[in-house]
Write a protein that binds this DNA or RNA. Sequence first.
DNA 1: TAGTGGTCTAGACCACAGT
DNA 2: CTGTGGTCTAGACCACTAA
Lengths: 258, 258
Amino acid sequence: MQLGAIDRADDRPPYRQIADHLRAAIDRGDLVAGDKLPSEAELIGNYGVARMTVRQAVQELRNEGRVVAEHGRGTFVRPPVQVRRLASERFARRHREAGLAAFSVEAQKTGFTPNVDQLEIATGPATPEIRDRLRLAEDEEVVSRSRRYLADGQPVETAVSYLPASVAAGSRIVEADTGPGGIYARLEDMGFELDHFTEEVSARMPSAEERRRLQLTDGVPVVVLVRTAYDTTGRPLEVCDTLKAAPAYVLEYEVPAR
Amino acid sequence: MQLGAIDRADDRPPYRQIADHLRAAIDRGDLVAGDKLPSEAELIGNYGVARMTVRQAVQELRNEGRVVAEHGRGTFVRPPVQVRRLASERFARRHREAGLAAFSVEAQKTGFTPNVDQLEIATGPATPEIRDRLRLAEDEEVVSRSRRYLADGQPVETAVSYLPASVAAGSRIVEADTGPGGIYARLEDMGFELDHFTEEVSARMPSAEERRRLQLTDGVPVVVLVRTAYDTTGRPLEVCDTLKAAPAYVLEYEVPAR
DNA sequence: TAGTGGTCTAGACCACAGT
DNA sequence: CTGTGGTCTAGACCACTAA
């Protein structure tokens, strides 16, 4: 492992010089995905600086998402992000009719093992925003279904669905297992005719809590996608608020030129 | 300014407790946009911890993009981002027929003064990616039109359009002013019948260069939107690669349930 | 000049992973 | 057990901003 030395004449502070050395080693290919960075002790010895200085250097690379620290093991060059393309086609009826929810469709296409955990189902009053989106009266309650999706054991998305309690209560939608095709298939079983969805996409930095839940390293933004499902009468039936690691996804949409 | 104290029994480490206190103060409205956070010295005094501990706490909020530190002045709650909703309707033909390009439509709706600068027009070979998207042969050239959009003088978006040279050369598309309704209106003038666009949306952290061009502070992600315009024969006529400050936008799409 | 954040030192104890 | 990163202390000097 070829590392330089601190140049006190350089106008960059030492921590930045160390960060630049490590970054260059990765770009050069001296360190490839999965490789362990020199330990903090080694960096301290090599550069002759205090521990906080090398930590600040490594923190820079963590914020850039280039390395990931594992407590007790070391700091590793991050494997390249596997980008998933999400076509707007993923909510097509034929998938539901084949018994597949959107996440299962994606798993089948991409070849990962899908899983769901941290499932929480509740019934109660709605926030003003959800009430507004579902066009509910002030006293109407909503069913909320919060869960986390995993691909090959790695968390990739968190989602919370909200439905009017008058629609979902008593159905399989409030069960742990919603059955084949998921929530939308159950709505169709109940006689609602799904017409279209709206999706609102934005991106921002996650809170510390969100970062932990998606096991994101520092410096990784998230995509916020809020989907609303409408039936053929124009009634909103469900609002689904999801969060994903942004760099891992490309969302695809088609827009008419009309 | 109401701050709590460190609870040594709490399983969260002190720096995270402090970060949570500050975050709560912002969420509660005790600290509003533009307000100065307590200085490091004040936080040290209030909590009775070392300086590195309060710095680590504040660093959390900086990484989340909620506050911004200014050397010599203090740390400030980030001013509210003016969120713009971009409906997929913004490329409707009627706007072009009214002589308005998409950005002008947005300006008129939101009430800002639109401007364009850093315009660069060039003709030359295409990158493999652009060639692929425009389905060009290896030797076909493209016209590229790079520009930056400003709202009330503030940069809000950078964009580069690519069109086959065989389509755009000699038209007003390679002039500084493309005329009323913009590029798409000119394509329709030339007899191309626009049918639909595809939009691919992702988000990531900007490079230093991109951050400068959009005048972003640290910790602000960007949305990457790549739009391709197709005519009624399915031929791709234009690819437009745009970059925006992520937290300032919500993109809206409609997806059929089919 | 006083107050602010930026960087750094030289230690310390802890929790976690692997032998 | 050893080695790793996570957190913390109690100082220091510096560069920048504003009065």
